[in-house]
């Protein structure tokens, strides 16, 4: 039972990371690519670590796995934010380059 659960979690995580990689290749510009990476990577790594946790059971490593999950969840969105900020400040080429929709105007 535990093996099946572990397999589902780890394989699901790996498939999500694969989707993120395909997204980097397929989507048209930097910002769209960072969408795929931010979301699919976060959940992918989360599921893989969760699978590891289920596999190990309650042991010394459980706390370390929890810490790893915490830091992944906190840092990946920040990385995606920084990539977006760079693309915004340098006005990198965008798909359907339209002016920003500004609520202040």
């Amino acid at each position: 039972m535990i093996e099946v659960l572990t397999a589902i979690l780890v394989l699901g995580g790996a498939l999500l990371i694969l989707v993120a990689a395909i997204g980097v290749l397929r989507l048209p510009d930097v910002l769209c690519r960072s969408h795929a990476v931010a979301k699919a990577m976060t959940l992918g790594i989360f599921l893989m670590l969760l699978g590891l946790w289920v596999h190990q059971g309650e042991s010394q490593s459980a706390l370390k796995i929890l810490l790893a999950i915490f830091f992944q969840l906190v840092t990946i969105p920040v990385a995606s934010h920084l990539i977006g900020l760079l693309a915004f400040d340098h006005d990198l080429p965008r798909w359907r380059h339209r002016p920003m929709d500004d609520h202040r105007k």
């Binding site: 997204g23 989507l27 048209p28 910002l31 795929a36 798909w95 920003m100």
Partner: peptide
Amino acid sequence: TVLFRSRDSLHPNF
């Protein structure tokens, strides 16, 4: 989005 949508159906913007 990644697997099934074509580029032409995307309308990204800020």
